[in-house]
Design a protein around this nucleic acid. Structure first.
Length: 556
RNA sequence: GCACCCGUAGCUCAGCUGGAUAGAGCGUUGGCUUGCGGAGCCAAAGGUCAUAGGUUCAAAUCCUGUCGGGUGUACCA
């Protein structure tokens, strides 16, 4: 069912079209703040067709445009500035709070099966804020797909074989010295840091030619797991990784996945796919098996290395096949750092040739990199901003701001997710600790606080669901803004851009705070009407925050 | 070298499917006691939208060149 305001606006557009007698429906945009109007209808595009100046067209249209939803239409320059009727706003506001959680849902993915990889960090590694960023973005995109009525399957994919495992295992085995007890003595709280240290150590050792040989062997063993002790250590530490991951996921507010894929599974299948197509799609070269991307304006990549192991490329083919077999998705999404953008183009091209039924169904969404002022983070060198460190810093910042704060974890989650979602996906995030930890201004806690305050107002009122049947004065602007929510979700869902939503929610909240500052609600003669507005506002804010994975606390 | 991405206020970013005087937050300066939660509100200062051309009634937005930065480019993921 379409939304009242959206319907009214498109109806106004077609009315304007027939008034003007033009071939193209006019666009209606949100009016700029300085014009004391809600929407604007630019007339410039019709100048040629009507052979009149935009100003004259606007004049004519303003005087002839009649519509129930319009309170005032005024020509300013080449625009017709439109003020909406308060009766329409009252009606649409009632729609917002009666639709409640479903207000803002869209239909564009109705009937579409979608698989999206979220929470992808590799086993045996530490989590830094880059991982958190990736997970938060992917999780939020999954939420947007759901908001668009898609049938969404969240999956994850984890590297549990290969060189990085060899590196870690080299250091872990050295630490254990043949005794698994030595590992079991490590208490849960210290395990993540331990694993992180081991990985850094193993990576360092790989520089040494002798150790490199050893590590390559250990890497190979990660596929076979033929040594019992190796296997025992491997499985123990792998479990630690996932225990830790579950904790992190809870803290960053992402949802759990319904299926966890491992490279081990994708490995065998990927190898088969590649081997079955040697000589046609793939080619042997210098002992390796490659895909000649140059033929397609891409670059050549190795799928099986000269030692006979699958590389990420081959395993990704296997994974694509696995996901397809299990879910038969219409669309499949992989959110990765931008550095893998070209890589995925090559893999997708190869997939298109060998797994034709999957062609065009998988999309890579490249994110920017998370950077510190000190430079690029890399878990290989240990030069990272550890995620737990960040949680602690946020926690302390919340307590410093308000020593008796409630729902601190919610505030931490809100601050972190908002900070990462408010910029456009694809541009780098320069991670400034002080700004991320900031709880004021354009931040998650600003929105959460405004939500808690709105709820607190509503709690003071007697009626469970306030009823308002009119809008006037200052209420008008707030109503218009909050009723734009469905239009915003439509855009965010279509483009899969969470920042569109954060920007809107922030502006809405600013508007609410202004209203709140200047207009008494409880005890005012217009209490019922204003309460209805606050109620609708809290519905919109909560729905929006939920899509972003940000908790909307009743108290803070 | 080649390919792709980026350059907007002191800093971090919106705006980019062309439309009105380019907007936020942080930071800076100055206000708001006694009213629903001040994590708030009001106001000021701060811009040649990297740069030079082009297209257009109209360009931060589209096209081209230049400069500056990033990423990728055969056995890491």
């Amino acid at each position: 069912m379409p939304y009242i305001l959206d319907t009214a606006l498109s109806d106004i557009a077609s009315t304007a079209q027939s008034v003007l007698g033009v071939s193209q429906s006019p666009s209606i945009e949100i009016a700029r703040a300085e014009f004391a109007a809600d929407y604007a209808l630019p007339c410039f595009v019709f100048a040629k067709e009507l052979k009149k100046s935009p100003q004259d067209i606007a004049q004519a249209l303003a005087s002839q445009l009649r519509h129930d939803a319009i309170a005032k239409a005024e020509a300013v320059g080449g625009f017709v500035n439109i003020t909406l009727a308060n009766s329409l706003l009252a009606q649409a506001t009632a729609e917002a709070y009666s639709r409640s959680q479903s207000y803002g849902t869209q239909e564009i993915f109705r009937g579409k099966k979608q698989v999206i990889e979220t929470n992808n960090p590799n086993a045996f590694k530490d989590m830094h804020i880059g991982h958190a960023y990736n997970s938060i973005v992917a999780d939020t995109i999954a939420n947007l797909l759901e908001l668009g009525s898609g049938e969404v399957h969240r999956v994850s994919y984890h590297g549990d074989v290969g060189l990085h495992v060899g590196r870690s295992m080299w250091a872990i085995l050295k630490y254990a010295q043949g005794d698994i007890q030595k590992l079991k003595e490590i208490v849960p709280a210290e395990r993540p840091a331990f694993l992180s240290r081991m990985y850094v150590e193993g990576t360092g050792a790989y520089e040494d030619p002798l150790e490199k040989q050893q590590i390559d062997l250990l890497a190979k063993q990660s596929f076979t797991l033929d040594d019992p002790f190796y296997k025992e250590v491997y499985e123990l530490c792998k479990q630690w990784s996932f225990d830790y991951l579950d904790e992190i996921i809870a803290t960053i507010g992402s949802k759990h996945v319904e299926r966890r894929y491992f490279e081990r599974e994708a490995d065998e299948l990927g190898r088969k796919i590649v081997e079955a197509n040697i000589g046609t799609v793939f080619k042997e070269s210098e002992g390796a098996v490659i895909f000649e991307g140059e033929k397609y304006d891409l670059h050549t990549r190795v799928f099986l290395n000269s030692r006979g192991n699958t590389l990420y490329e081959a395993r990704d083919l296997g994974l694509m096949q696995l996901k397809h077999t299990e879910f038969h998705p219409d669309m499949s999404y992989i959110v990765t750092a931008e550095e893998q953008k070209e890589y995925f183009k090559v893999v997708f091209k190869a997939a298109e040739l060998v797994l034709s039924e999957l062609a065009g169904k998988t999309t890579n969404i490249p994110t920017g990199m998370v950077k510190l002022s000190t430079g690029k983070m890399s878990s290989r060198t240990g030069k990272v901003l550890n995620i737990e460190w960040l949680f602690r810093a946020l926690h302390e910042a919340v307590l410093a701001r308000s020593p008796d704060a409630k729902n601190i974890e919610d505030t931490v989650t809100g601050a972190l997710r908002y900070a990462m979602l408010k910029v456009r996906i694809g541009s780098d995030i320069i991670f400034d600790i002080n700004e991320a930890v900031s709880l004021e201004g354009n931040s998650g806690p600003y929105l959460q606080y405004a939500y808690a305050r709105a709820r607190s107002i509503l709690a003071k009122l007697d009626a469970a669901v306030p009823v308002g049947d009119s809008i006037e004065g200052d209420e008008h602007q707030l109503a218009v803004r909050l009723l734009q929510y469905p239009a915003v979700t439509a855009k965010a869902v279509e483009e899969l851009t969470p920042h569109v939503l954060t920007a809107y929610l922030y502006e809405l909240t600013q508007q609410f705070n202004r209203f709140y500052e200047h207009n008494r609600i409880v005890g005012h003669a217009r209490e019922a009407e204003r309460a209805a507005l606050v109620q609708a506002y809290s519905v919109v804010l909560k729905n929006g925050l939920t899509v972003l994975g940000i908790p909307a606390p009743e108290r803070m």
